[in-house]
Amino acid sequence: MQLVINGLVIGSIIAITAIGLSMIYKTLNFVNFAHGDFVAFAAYIALFANTSGMHLASAFLVAIIATIALGIFIEKVVWLPMRRKNASRTTLIIISIGFALVLRNILIFIWGGSTRNYDIPVRRGFEFFGATITSNQVLVIFAAFILVFALHYLLSRTKIGKSMRALSDNVDLARISGIDVDRVILWTWVIGLGLAAAGGVLYGLVTAIRPDMGWYLLLPMFAAVILGGIGNPYGTIAGGIVIGLSQELSTAILPTEYKFAVSFVVMALVLLLKPEGIFGGAK
């Protein structure tokens, strides 16, 4: 039971952070290896705001805004010009790795390589069917739910959300039907990175903050994206939960250190056997 709860918590974080990775992957047609480092960046911004006296709730907002701003900046100076140049998928992947290195090491440069925690009171957890749940864990799941509902509303009810879905379904078709592609891509970054940032701050609540936390989240996120079918936000959410659960449940039979390997194995199996994803992403 404890493992299930831990799995759900981690799973919901993977889910909301991976949505952005998935949407960008589909609309821009490349894997953003720096996505995890955006997650870490958000956690550090929240840490900074929080330790300089801000309440965590406002630090949360500051982190999201800062991450989105950084994402827009990179879109304008890197991705947009590279799209104009018709850069290949491989070129984009390598650039994203370069950026991942830059971002991660800026974090190390400023805050050092050691682990940090938010400045919040530690509360005791409560018992639930023989498992201990901390209030932070409850908060994470609760926040993830709200974010997912907000996303659902955005994608299904608003004009920009509909164009985003149209774009990730078929870029050429969207372009022909008069959608301002660059603007929608910008919004995809905003929403994708906003969710990633939220996930990063929440992640900091249940685990220590480290510069390489984004890196260790990257493979589970990929796994969630692949499992859910690239560009399918709901599939990605399901994929994230499945990956989170299987990582935690694996600790019952495997050493904890192999959590990371579990998501890799799940992903590799899906790629080799059913590359279009499991959760309705098939087309």
């Binding site: 890197v78 650039i95 290195l101 800026i106």
Partner: peptide
């Protein structure tokens, strides 16, 4: 590492 990362980006770009 920041310099290396930037180098990789700029070379590819």
């Amino acid at each position: 590492m920041i310099v290396i990362g930037l180098l990789l980006m700029l070379l590819m770009m």
